[in-house]
């Protein structure tokens, strides 16, 4: 499992990273934790001639907690799990991160890499749909923000330009109850189906709900219809089933080694129902 040769760069500021990306164009790739990219390079499904390591950019690390939560792209999944402030402000982040891969992978795998990668199997993109996050991209023309819900176009295709670096993700402090529920074949596996749910309760009824699904289409799926099916209800069995039916209209799973389409739809329904019940119990 030997990747093709590449030239290795470890710049220590963002300007240098962008200059390298401009110089080498599609011959260059940035590497964060490497836990999606290196496996692809071993299989020679990726063969960048220039590998630009972001580990020297300490500015891209860190978690800021306020009314808006901001997470630097190079923050690892393990750091998400260990952060007390984040556990209080947005507990769904750690609940999801604990279900990604395994401890060794989470020690190197980053939030930014998980989001920028564009693999439909990654868990953070779906979660970012649920939280209505914004992604900060910095390129030769400056800084721009893209809504998570506008970021993913197809498997491994995002609106990020080749010369742009994802520097941070931010989202408003989530309200209400939460759940990240994931069905996988074994620990450390990508999702057969996963659901991210936030529910706000007022006077015994759902006043707002946000629902997103992972690995059930070639992009993460934000299901506005599923959220709408819950709003105004007391979140009983009927409302849950209405939300599941609405969600099933928004996903488009493909048959693969995790099962045929019918099975995936079944699992998606079970997982979403569980996530809604758990989120409601915490709302």
């Amino acid at each position: 499992m030997i990747p093709s040769t590449f030239e290795y760069h470890r710049p220590d500021d963002l300007a240098a990273v962008i200059a390298l990306l401009q110089e080498h164009g599609d011959e260059a790739r940035v590497v964060a934790g490497g836990h999606s990219l290196i496996p692809m390079m071993k299989l020679r499904m990726a063969d960048p001639a220039h590998l630009i390591d972001l580990q020297g950019l300490s500015d891209l690390k860190g978690i800021e907690i306020g009314d808006v939560i901001r997470i630097g792209a190079m923050t690892t999944q393990a750091e998400i799990i260990d952060h007390d402030g984040l556990a209080e402000a947005a507990p769904i982040m750690a609940e999801a991160a604990r279900q990604i891969a395994d401890p060794q992978v989470r020690n190197l795998g980053t939030v930014g890499g998980n989001i920028a990668n564009g693999d439909p199997g990654n868990d953070m993109p779906g979660l970012m749909q649920c939280l209505d996050a914004r992604f900060t991209l910095v390129g030769p023309d400056g800084t721009r923000e893209v809504a998570a819900r506008d970021f993913y176009e197809a498997a491994y295709v995002t609106t990020r330009e080749e010369e742009e670096v994802l520097t941070a993700v931010s989202f408003d402090r989530p309200r209400g109850g939460y759940a990240y529920e994931k069905q996988k074949r074994k620990i450390g596996d990508y999702a057969t189906a996963a659901a991210a749910v936030q529910i706000v309760a007022e006077g015994g009824r759902v006043s707002a709900a946000s629902v997103a699904m992972t690995n059930l289409s070639d992009v993460p799926v934000f299901s506005a219809a599923a959220g709408a099916a819950l709003e105004g209800t007391a979140c009983g069995e009927e409302a849950v089933q209405a939300a599941v039916a609405a969600m099933l209209g928004d996903i488009d799973p493909m048959e693969d080694n995790r099962g045929p389409v019918e099975f995936k739809k079944h699992v998606a329904g079970v997982i979403l129902a569980r996530a809604i019940v758990r989120a409601w119990s915490r709302a």
Binding site: M1, Y8, G34, D53, Q55, Q104, V105, N107, L108
Partner: peptide
């Protein structure tokens, strides 16, 4: 598995350069 910089990592998924 080895310990790198105080963290457990899989040494088959780290480039020498990193």
């Amino acid at each position: 598995t080895v310990d790198m910089g105080g963290k457990s990592v899989k040494a088959c998924t780290v480039f020498a350069a990193q």
